[in-house]
């Protein structure tokens, strides 16, 4: 049923979308020219998604690093507006995403609607944090001496994110906090449900999010993740979507090479209201001292 969704006229043949990667603001195919079959909840063919390689991962890290400089130094107000804009554009494309979520997971229409609602609301929630986090987690420190002393959060850098299976809400829940605080990221989308991730990438690409801030790879987590975990130009690693405990441990071990900040996987109700921890995990506290004198 799904492939014929745009049919108005039985005689017209659909123009199907090719689901590609999202790297540096562009939508390339995997450099490996590989793809894998994505099916719906009942096993029916949905699309061939790109099967990203380690080299795609490398390219994505380069793009994320390149984008970090300007994204991290934008004003928090501006970042908040961009994240809010993602919510706006997502809302405007909700029909498509509801359908993709339904197809991917088999939830009913109400369930898909709820997931999109929550995803949009979550983006709005994080958008508002962009210019508030520093006020909540920063500090003026009353040191015992004639010094001005201020601590404030700064983005960690390039974060590799292993997205959870929840194809839209899960993805938004792990990406939004990372970029709201000024990081850029390389996301490995849910292996079985990659299509909403690419559609979300299209949303972000048209929401004034600069290319490279979010890069989306589809494919096998076990193939790409080790390269990202050991990549010396990646500063953080979010293992939320890694269900295999042995793989999670191996990735954490690899991440130790350059002392990445690691968020371990754990039980989490993504539908619940988020806390600050997804933002604070990938920020660094910088403390500036200056003498006070005439």
């Amino acid at each position: 049923m799904s492939r014929d969704r745009t049919r108005r006229d039985a005689d017209r043949i659909d123009v199907r979308k090719t689901y590609k990667l999202y790297v540096g603001g562009a939508f390339p195919r995997s450099e490996s020219a590989r793809s894998y079959e994505v099916t719906d909840a009942r096993g029916g063919f949905l699309a061939n998604a790109s099967l990203a390689s380690r080299k795609d991962g490398r390219d994505a890290v380069v793009a994320a690093r390149k984008a970090f400089g300007s994204w991290s130094t934008r004003t928090p107000y501006n970042r908040g507006q961009v994240v809010y804009r993602i919510a706006e554009v997502l809302e405007s494309r909700r029909d498509q995403l509801e359908r993709e979520v339904r197809e991917a997971t088999g939830v009913n229409a109400g369930g898909a609607r709820a997931e999109v609602d929550q995803a949009v609301d979550r983006l709005v929630w994080y958008a508002g944090w962009a210019d508030k986090l520093a006020q909540v987690v920063g500090n003026a420190n009353p040191v015992a001496g004639p010094y001005f002393n201020l601590s404030s959060p700064e983005p960690t850098g390039v974060v590799a994110v292993m997205a959870p299976a929840s194809p839209l809400l899960g993805l938004v829940s792990v990406v939004a906090p990372v970029i709201t605080t000024g990081n850029t990221c390389v996301v490995v989308a849910s292996q079985p449900h990659p299509l909403p991730a690419i559609t979300l990438a299209e949303v972000m690409a048209t929401a004034d999010l600069p290319g490279g801030v979010v890069n989306v790879l589809t494919g096998h987590q076990g193939e790409i993740a080790p390269w990202l975990a050991s990549h010396l130009d990646v500063d953080g690693l979010d293992l939320t979507g890694v269900d295999d405990a042995d793989l999670a441990r191996d990735l954490e071990v690899a991440a130790a090479d350059n002392l990445k900040r690691v968020r371990r996987p754990g039980p989490e109700d993504l539908a619940a209201d988020p806390r600050l921890d997804r933002m604070t995990r990938f920020v660094e506290t910088k403390t500036v001292w200056h003498p006070v004198g005439t």
Binding site: N139, N141, V143, G145, N149, S151, T285, K286, T287, H290
Partner: peptide, 19 residues
């Protein structure tokens, strides 16, 4: 850097985060 000392250096204080 986690600590930036401007016009001073190697200052520490229990109220001031370091890392």
């Amino acid at each position: 850097a986690g600590v930036v000392w401007a016009n001073t250096f190697n200052k520490f204080d229990p109220t001031s985060p370091f890392g």
